[in-house]
Amino acid sequence: MSGNGNAAATAEENSPKMRVIRVGTRKSQLARIQTDSVVATLKASYPGLQFEIIAMSTTGDKILDTALSKIGEKSLFTKELEHALEKNEVDLVVHSLKDLPTVLPPGFTIGAICKRENPHDAVVFHPKFVGKTLETLPEKSVVGTSSLRRAAQLQRKFPHLEFRSIRGNLNTRLRKLDEQQEFSAIILATAGLQRMGWHNRVGQILHPEECMYAVGQGALGVEVRAKDQDILDLVGVLHDPETLLRCIAERAFLRHLEGGCSVPVAVHTAMKDGQLYLTGGVWSLDGSDSIQETMQATIHVPAQHEDGPEDDPQLVGITARNIPRGPQLAAQNLGISLANLLLSKGAKNILDVARQLNDAH
Protein backbone atom coordinates (compact mmCIF):
# COMPACT_ATOMS: atom_id res chain seq x y z
CA MET A 1 0.00 0.00 0.00
CA SER A 2 2.71 2.42 1.03
CA GLY A 3 4.58 1.66 -2.19
CA ASN A 4 1.56 2.67 -4.24
CA GLY A 5 1.21 5.84 -2.20
CA ASN A 6 4.82 6.79 -3.00
CA ALA A 7 4.23 6.07 -6.68
CA ALA A 8 1.18 8.34 -6.63
CA ALA A 9 3.17 11.08 -4.93
CA THR A 10 5.94 10.74 -7.51
CA ALA A 11 3.40 10.88 -10.34
CA GLU A 12 1.96 14.05 -8.81
CA GLU A 13 5.42 15.64 -8.64
CA ASN A 14 6.05 14.77 -12.29
CA SER A 15 2.65 15.89 -13.51
CA PRO A 16 2.47 18.91 -15.84
CA LYS A 17 0.91 20.99 -13.05
CA MET A 18 4.20 20.96 -11.15
CA ARG A 19 6.30 21.76 -14.18
CA VAL A 20 8.29 24.97 -14.48
CA ILE A 21 8.37 26.30 -18.05
CA ARG A 22 11.58 28.22 -18.73
CA VAL A 23 11.23 31.13 -21.13
CA GLY A 24 14.29 32.61 -22.85
CA THR A 25 14.55 36.28 -23.85
CA ARG A 26 17.05 38.97 -24.75
CA LYS A 27 18.06 41.24 -21.88
CA SER A 28 16.84 44.55 -23.29
CA GLN A 29 13.95 46.32 -21.59
CA LEU A 30 11.78 45.97 -24.70
CA ALA A 31 12.50 42.23 -24.97
CA ARG A 32 11.59 41.77 -21.30
CA ILE A 33 8.32 43.68 -21.73
CA GLN A 34 7.44 41.56 -24.77
CA THR A 35 8.29 38.33 -22.95
CA ASP A 36 6.30 39.38 -19.88
CA SER A 37 3.23 39.92 -22.08
CA VAL A 38 3.56 36.43 -23.61
CA VAL A 39 4.08 34.81 -20.21
CA ALA A 40 1.03 36.67 -18.82
CA THR A 41 -1.13 35.17 -21.61
CA LEU A 42 0.27 31.69 -20.98
CA LYS A 43 -0.31 32.02 -17.21
CA ALA A 44 -3.93 32.98 -17.84
CA SER A 45 -4.38 29.88 -20.03
CA TYR A 46 -2.42 27.54 -17.73
CA PRO A 47 -2.87 28.71 -14.12
CA GLY A 48 -1.40 25.42 -12.87
CA LEU A 49 1.99 25.97 -14.51
CA GLN A 50 4.91 28.05 -13.30
CA PHE A 51 7.00 30.18 -15.67
CA GLU A 52 10.60 31.27 -15.18
CA ILE A 53 12.10 33.96 -17.42
CA ILE A 54 15.79 33.58 -18.33
CA ALA A 55 17.38 36.65 -19.97
CA MET A 56 20.62 36.61 -21.97
CA SER A 57 22.67 38.85 -24.25
CA THR A 58 23.01 38.06 -27.96
CA THR A 59 25.66 38.89 -30.57
CA GLY A 60 23.49 41.71 -31.91
CA ASP A 61 23.25 43.21 -28.42
CA LYS A 62 27.03 43.13 -27.98
CA ILE A 63 28.25 44.51 -31.33
CA LEU A 64 27.00 48.08 -31.22
CA ASP A 65 29.56 49.94 -33.31
CA THR A 66 28.71 48.28 -36.64
CA ALA A 67 25.60 48.49 -38.82
CA LEU A 68 23.56 45.29 -38.60
CA SER A 69 23.80 44.73 -42.34
CA LYS A 70 27.62 44.85 -42.17
CA ILE A 71 28.19 42.29 -39.41
CA GLY A 72 27.78 39.52 -41.97
CA GLU A 73 26.22 37.00 -39.64
CA LYS A 74 22.67 35.69 -39.66
CA SER A 75 20.65 35.14 -36.49
CA LEU A 76 22.32 38.09 -34.74
CA PHE A 77 19.63 38.35 -32.10
CA THR A 78 18.69 34.68 -31.90
CA LYS A 79 21.78 32.42 -31.90
CA GLU A 80 22.55 32.43 -28.16
CA LEU A 81 18.88 31.91 -27.35
CA GLU A 82 18.67 28.99 -29.78
CA HIS A 83 21.79 27.51 -28.19
CA ALA A 84 20.01 27.56 -24.80
CA LEU A 85 16.94 25.97 -26.42
CA GLU A 86 19.09 23.25 -27.97
CA LYS A 87 20.75 22.45 -24.63
CA ASN A 88 17.37 22.24 -22.87
CA GLU A 89 18.22 25.25 -20.70
CA VAL A 90 14.97 26.91 -21.82
CA ASP A 91 11.71 25.48 -23.20
CA LEU A 92 10.68 28.37 -25.44
CA VAL A 93 12.08 31.71 -26.58
CA VAL A 94 10.21 34.94 -27.29
CA HIS A 95 11.52 36.98 -30.24
CA SER A 96 10.50 39.93 -32.34
CA LEU A 97 9.38 37.95 -35.40
CA LYS A 98 11.35 40.22 -37.74
CA ASP A 99 14.58 39.00 -36.07
CA LEU A 100 13.85 35.36 -36.98
CA PRO A 101 15.29 34.20 -40.34
CA THR A 102 12.87 32.56 -42.79
CA VAL A 103 14.96 29.37 -42.58
CA LEU A 104 15.54 28.29 -38.98
CA PRO A 105 18.36 25.99 -37.88
CA PRO A 106 17.41 22.29 -37.91
CA GLY A 107 15.45 21.21 -34.85
CA PHE A 108 13.70 24.52 -34.22
CA THR A 109 10.32 25.94 -35.21
CA ILE A 110 8.18 28.99 -34.53
CA GLY A 111 5.40 27.44 -32.46
CA ALA A 112 3.31 30.59 -32.14
CA ILE A 113 2.85 34.03 -33.66
CA CYS A 114 1.09 36.47 -31.36
CA LYS A 115 -1.38 39.14 -32.45
CA ARG A 116 0.42 41.83 -34.38
CA GLU A 117 0.64 45.38 -33.09
CA ASN A 118 1.07 48.40 -35.38
CA PRO A 119 3.66 47.18 -37.93
CA HIS A 120 4.52 50.62 -39.34
CA ASP A 121 7.66 52.66 -38.74
CA ALA A 122 7.60 55.81 -36.64
CA VAL A 123 9.68 58.98 -36.65
CA VAL A 124 10.96 60.31 -33.32
CA PHE A 125 12.24 63.88 -33.52
CA HIS A 126 14.95 65.71 -31.62
CA PRO A 127 13.24 68.02 -29.07
CA LYS A 128 14.02 71.10 -31.20
CA PHE A 129 12.19 69.59 -34.19
CA VAL A 130 9.06 68.35 -32.42
CA GLY A 131 6.04 69.24 -34.55
CA LYS A 132 7.95 68.73 -37.81
CA THR A 133 7.60 65.85 -40.29
CA LEU A 134 10.33 64.29 -42.44
CA GLU A 135 9.06 66.47 -45.28
CA THR A 136 9.43 69.70 -43.31
CA LEU A 137 12.84 68.98 -41.71
CA PRO A 138 15.55 71.42 -42.88
CA GLU A 139 17.74 70.54 -45.86
CA LYS A 140 20.61 68.10 -45.02
CA SER A 141 19.06 67.11 -41.69
CA VAL A 142 20.51 63.80 -40.49
CA VAL A 143 18.08 60.98 -39.76
CA GLY A 144 19.25 57.88 -37.89
CA THR A 145 18.23 54.35 -38.83
CA SER A 146 19.92 50.96 -38.48
CA SER A 147 17.93 49.55 -41.41
CA LEU A 148 18.87 49.46 -45.10
CA ARG A 149 15.17 48.94 -45.86
CA ARG A 150 14.17 52.21 -44.21
CA ALA A 151 17.12 54.18 -45.57
CA ALA A 152 16.57 53.06 -49.18
CA GLN A 153 12.86 53.90 -49.20
CA LEU A 154 13.18 57.19 -47.33
CA GLN A 155 16.13 58.47 -49.39
CA ARG A 156 13.97 58.00 -52.46
CA LYS A 157 11.02 59.80 -50.86
CA PHE A 158 12.92 62.53 -49.00
CA PRO A 159 16.05 63.35 -51.04
CA HIS A 160 16.72 66.51 -48.98
CA LEU A 161 17.61 64.39 -45.93
CA GLU A 162 20.75 62.43 -45.05
CA PHE A 163 20.43 58.96 -43.50
CA ARG A 164 23.05 57.56 -41.12
CA SER A 165 23.33 54.35 -39.14
CA ILE A 166 22.40 54.43 -35.45
CA ARG A 167 22.74 51.32 -33.26
CA GLY A 168 21.80 50.29 -29.74
CA ASN A 169 18.58 49.32 -28.01
CA LEU A 170 15.63 51.73 -27.94
CA ASN A 171 16.79 53.46 -24.76
CA THR A 172 20.29 53.99 -26.20
CA ARG A 173 19.02 55.34 -29.51
CA LEU A 174 16.66 57.80 -27.86
CA ARG A 175 19.47 58.99 -25.60
CA LYS A 176 21.75 59.51 -28.64
CA LEU A 177 18.97 61.50 -30.32
CA ASP A 178 18.16 63.70 -27.31
CA GLU A 179 21.63 64.28 -25.85
CA GLN A 180 23.74 64.65 -28.99
CA GLN A 181 23.27 67.10 -31.82
CA GLU A 182 24.06 64.62 -34.64
CA PHE A 183 20.50 63.48 -35.42
CA SER A 184 17.43 65.57 -36.17
CA ALA A 185 15.25 62.45 -36.01
CA ILE A 186 15.44 58.67 -35.83
CA ILE A 187 13.25 55.95 -37.33
CA LEU A 188 11.99 53.18 -35.05
CA ALA A 189 9.28 50.53 -35.10
CA THR A 190 6.00 51.95 -33.80
CA ALA A 191 5.22 48.69 -31.97
CA GLY A 192 8.40 48.88 -29.89
CA LEU A 193 7.73 52.46 -28.84
CA GLN A 194 4.16 51.58 -27.91
CA ARG A 195 5.20 48.51 -25.91
CA MET A 196 7.66 50.69 -23.98
CA GLY A 197 4.87 53.17 -23.22
CA TRP A 198 6.55 55.93 -25.23
CA HIS A 199 3.52 56.89 -27.32
CA ASN A 200 4.28 60.57 -26.72
CA ARG A 201 7.59 60.29 -28.62
CA VAL A 202 5.90 59.20 -31.86
CA GLY A 203 6.10 62.34 -34.00
CA GLN A 204 4.99 60.75 -37.28
CA ILE A 205 3.85 57.30 -38.36
CA LEU A 206 5.05 56.39 -41.85
CA HIS A 207 2.39 55.14 -44.26
CA PRO A 208 3.14 52.34 -46.76
CA GLU A 209 3.54 54.87 -49.61
CA GLU A 210 6.38 56.47 -47.62
CA CYS A 211 7.97 53.38 -46.08
CA MET A 212 6.77 49.79 -46.12
CA TYR A 213 7.71 47.68 -43.13
CA ALA A 214 9.95 44.68 -42.49
CA VAL A 215 8.68 41.12 -42.82
CA GLY A 216 7.02 40.16 -39.53
CA GLN A 217 7.39 43.64 -38.00
CA GLY A 218 5.12 44.29 -35.01
CA ALA A 219 4.53 40.58 -34.29
CA LEU A 220 6.14 38.35 -31.68
CA GLY A 221 7.29 34.82 -32.52
CA VAL A 222 7.71 32.02 -29.98
CA GLU A 223 10.50 29.62 -30.96
CA VAL A 224 10.52 26.06 -29.61
CA ARG A 225 12.18 22.71 -30.25
CA ALA A 226 10.42 21.23 -33.29
CA LYS A 227 9.98 17.81 -31.70
CA ASP A 228 8.77 19.08 -28.32
CA GLN A 229 5.07 18.26 -28.76
CA ASP A 230 4.11 19.27 -25.21
CA ILE A 231 5.50 22.78 -25.63
CA LEU A 232 4.07 23.08 -29.17
CA ASP A 233 0.64 22.27 -27.73
CA LEU A 234 1.21 24.70 -24.87
CA VAL A 235 2.16 27.72 -27.01
CA GLY A 236 -0.47 27.00 -29.68
CA VAL A 237 -2.99 29.10 -27.72
CA LEU A 238 -0.90 32.19 -28.57
CA HIS A 239 -1.46 31.92 -32.35
CA ASP A 240 -3.44 34.80 -33.85
CA PRO A 241 -4.86 33.41 -37.12
CA GLU A 242 -4.86 36.67 -39.13
CA THR A 243 -1.35 37.64 -38.01
CA LEU A 244 -0.17 34.09 -38.74
CA LEU A 245 -1.47 34.12 -42.32
CA ARG A 246 -0.13 37.60 -43.06
CA CYS A 247 3.29 36.65 -41.70
CA ILE A 248 3.40 33.33 -43.59
CA ALA A 249 2.80 35.30 -46.82
CA GLU A 250 5.46 37.88 -45.90
CA ARG A 251 8.06 35.28 -44.88
CA ALA A 252 7.41 33.17 -48.00
CA PHE A 253 7.93 36.30 -50.14
CA LEU A 254 11.23 37.10 -48.40
CA ARG A 255 12.49 33.52 -48.45
CA HIS A 256 11.75 33.09 -52.15
CA LEU A 257 13.56 36.36 -52.92
CA GLU A 258 16.45 35.19 -50.74
CA GLY A 259 16.38 38.53 -48.98
CA GLY A 260 17.72 39.25 -45.51
CA CYS A 261 19.24 41.95 -43.32
CA SER A 262 21.74 43.01 -45.95
CA VAL A 263 19.24 43.95 -48.67
CA PRO A 264 16.33 46.42 -48.77
CA VAL A 265 13.14 44.32 -48.94
CA ALA A 266 9.82 45.52 -47.51
CA VAL A 267 6.19 44.46 -47.38
CA HIS A 268 2.67 45.54 -46.54
CA THR A 269 -0.21 43.12 -45.91
CA ALA A 270 -3.91 43.58 -45.27
CA MET A 271 -6.85 41.23 -44.80
CA LYS A 272 -10.16 42.51 -46.14
CA ASP A 273 -13.41 40.77 -47.15
CA GLY A 274 -11.81 37.34 -47.33
CA GLN A 275 -8.88 38.62 -49.42
CA LEU A 276 -5.26 38.73 -48.31
CA TYR A 277 -3.43 41.60 -50.02
CA LEU A 278 0.36 41.43 -50.14
CA THR A 279 2.51 44.28 -51.43
CA GLY A 280 6.24 43.69 -51.65
CA GLY A 281 9.16 45.72 -52.88
CA VAL A 282 12.92 45.66 -53.37
CA TRP A 283 15.20 48.70 -53.57
CA SER A 284 18.74 49.57 -54.49
CA LEU A 285 20.75 50.82 -51.48
CA ASP A 286 20.25 54.47 -52.42
CA GLY A 287 16.59 53.92 -53.28
CA SER A 288 17.01 55.09 -56.88
CA ASP A 289 16.00 51.73 -58.34
CA SER A 290 12.98 49.78 -57.11
CA ILE A 291 10.30 47.26 -58.02
CA GLN A 292 7.00 47.07 -56.16
CA GLU A 293 3.95 44.94 -56.89
CA THR A 294 0.73 43.88 -55.16
CA MET A 295 -1.09 40.56 -55.39
CA GLN A 296 -4.09 39.14 -53.57
CA ALA A 297 -5.60 35.75 -52.78
CA THR A 298 -8.90 34.57 -51.37
CA ILE A 299 -8.16 33.25 -47.90
CA HIS A 300 -10.60 32.25 -45.18
CA VAL A 301 -9.32 33.37 -41.78
CA PRO A 302 -10.17 30.45 -39.51
CA ALA A 303 -11.39 30.78 -35.97
CA GLN A 304 -8.69 29.99 -33.42
CA HIS A 305 -8.47 26.28 -32.57
CA GLU A 306 -10.24 24.77 -35.51
CA ASP A 307 -8.62 21.39 -35.96
CA GLY A 308 -5.46 21.89 -37.95
CA PRO A 309 -3.04 19.45 -39.58
CA GLU A 310 -1.82 16.59 -37.44
CA ASP A 311 1.47 16.01 -39.26
CA ASP A 312 2.60 19.62 -38.63
CA PRO A 313 5.24 20.13 -41.33
CA GLN A 314 6.62 23.65 -41.07
CA LEU A 315 5.80 26.48 -43.43
CA VAL A 316 8.55 29.15 -43.59
CA GLY A 317 9.73 28.00 -40.16
CA ILE A 318 6.27 28.13 -38.57
CA THR A 319 4.27 25.27 -37.04
CA ALA A 320 0.57 26.00 -36.49
CA ARG A 321 -1.16 22.73 -35.73
CA ASN A 322 -4.38 24.32 -34.51
CA ILE A 323 -4.94 26.37 -37.69
CA PRO A 324 -6.25 24.64 -40.86
CA ARG A 325 -3.64 23.82 -43.49
CA GLY A 326 -5.49 25.23 -46.51
CA PRO A 327 -5.29 28.92 -45.55
CA GLN A 328 -1.64 28.51 -44.51
CA LEU A 329 -0.70 27.04 -47.90
CA ALA A 330 -2.70 29.74 -49.72
CA ALA A 331 -0.80 32.44 -47.80
CA GLN A 332 2.55 30.79 -48.57
CA ASN A 333 1.66 30.49 -52.26
CA LEU A 334 0.72 34.17 -52.37
CA GLY A 335 4.16 35.11 -51.03
CA ILE A 336 5.94 32.85 -53.51
CA SER A 337 3.85 34.15 -56.43
CA LEU A 338 4.62 37.77 -55.58
CA ALA A 339 8.33 36.98 -55.26
CA ASN A 340 8.26 35.28 -58.67
CA LEU A 341 6.56 38.34 -60.17
CA LEU A 342 9.28 40.64 -58.81
CA LEU A 343 12.03 38.25 -59.93
CA SER A 344 10.54 38.26 -63.44
CA LYS A 345 10.85 42.06 -63.43
CA GLY A 346 14.53 42.11 -62.45
CA ALA A 347 14.49 42.00 -58.64
CA LYS A 348 17.43 39.59 -58.45
CA ASN A 349 19.75 42.06 -60.16
CA ILE A 350 18.73 44.89 -57.80
CA LEU A 351 19.27 42.67 -54.74
CA ASP A 352 22.60 41.27 -56.01
CA VAL A 353 23.97 44.78 -56.59
CA ALA A 354 22.70 45.91 -53.17
CA ARG A 355 24.41 42.93 -51.53
CA GLN A 356 27.70 43.56 -53.33
CA LEU A 357 27.69 47.27 -52.47
CA ASN A 358 26.81 46.58 -48.85
CA ASP A 359 29.59 43.98 -48.56
CA ALA A 360 32.12 46.34 -50.17
CA HIS A 361 31.55 49.20 -47.73
Score class of each variant (00 low, 15 high):
Ala347Met: 06
Lys74Gln: 15
Val301Phe: 11
Asp240Ile: 06
Leu238Gly: 01
Tyr46Ser: 09
Asn171Asp: 14
Thr319Glu: 04
Gly111Trp: 02
Glu89Leu: 10
Ala55Arg: 09
His95Trp: 02
Ala84Cys: 08
Cys114Thr: 14
Lys43Phe: 06
Gly72His: 09
Lys70Trp: 09
Cys247Glu: 05
Glu162Ala: 07
Arg164Cys: 10
Val39Glu: 07
His239Tyr: 07
Ser344Leu: 02
Val301Gly: 12
Leu342Pro: 02
Ala214Asp: 02
Ser69Thr: 09
Lys70Ile: 13
Leu76Tyr: 07
Gly131Tyr: 11
Val90Gln: 05
Leu81Arg: 01
Gln314Thr: 10
Leu64Phe: 09
Val39Gln: 07
Ala249Glu: 03
Asn358Thr: 15
Val123Thr: 14
Asn118Gly: 04
Ile54Thr: 09
Pro101Ala: 12
Leu334Tyr: 05
Lys132His: 10
Leu338Gly: 02
Asn169Leu: 09
Lys140Ser: 13
Gly107Phe: 13
Lys87Ser: 13
Ala266Val: 15
Pro138Gly: 08
Gln180Leu: 11
Ser344Asp: 15
Phe129Gly: 08
Asn118Met: 12
Glu223Lys: 03
His268Asp: 05
Lys79Phe: 06
Leu161Cys: 12
Tyr46Cys: 09
Val123His: 03
Leu104Gln: 08
Leu276Tyr: 13
Ile323Ala: 04
Met196His: 12
Ser344Pro: 14
Gln153Asn: 01
Leu170Trp: 01
Pro47Lys: 15
Gly274Cys: 05
Asp240Lys: 10
Val282Cys: 08
Gln180Gly: 10
Ala122Gln: 06
Pro313Tyr: 15
Thr58Tyr: 00
Arg246His: 05
Ala152Val: 13
Lys176Thr: 10
Gly168Cys: 02
Glu210Pro: 02
Arg201Glu: 00
Ala189Asp: 00
Ala84Asp: 08
Ala249Phe: 00
Cys211Thr: 06
Lys62Tyr: 12
His83Glu: 13
Tyr46Asp: 11
Arg246Met: 09
Phe51Arg: 01
Val94Lys: 03
Ala249Tyr: 00
Phe125Thr: 04
Gln155Gly: 11
Met271His: 15
Leu232Trp: 08
Ile336Ala: 08
Thr58Glu: 10
Ile71Gly: 09
Asn169Lys: 11
Thr58His: 00
Leu232Lys: 13
Phe129Asn: 01
His160Ile: 10
Leu276Asp: 03
Arg195Asn: 02
Lys62Leu: 04
Leu341Ile: 00
Phe163Gly: 08
His160Gly: 11
Leu64Thr: 11
Val38Gln: 02
Ala270Lys: 15
Leu97Val: 12
Gln328Pro: 11
Met295Val: 14
Thr109Phe: 04
Ile186Pro: 02
Ile323Pro: 02
Pro105Arg: 10
Ala40Ser: 09
Leu76Arg: 11
Val263Asp: 03
Phe163Met: 11
Leu104Glu: 05
Leu342Asp: 02
Val90Ala: 07
Met212Ile: 14
Ser57Asp: 15
Gly131Cys: 07
Gly144Glu: 05
Leu188Met: 09
Glu179Asn: 12
Val301Cys: 08
Arg251Asn: 05
Leu278Ala: 05
Gly287Glu: 01
Pro127Ile: 14
Ala55Ser: 12
Gln217Gly: 01
Pro302Asp: 12
Pro208Ser: 10
Val222Asn: 01
Ser262Glu: 15
Asp99Thr: 01
Asp91Lys: 12
Asp311Val: 11
Ile248Ala: 03
Ser288Tyr: 06
Lys43Trp: 08
Ser288Gly: 13
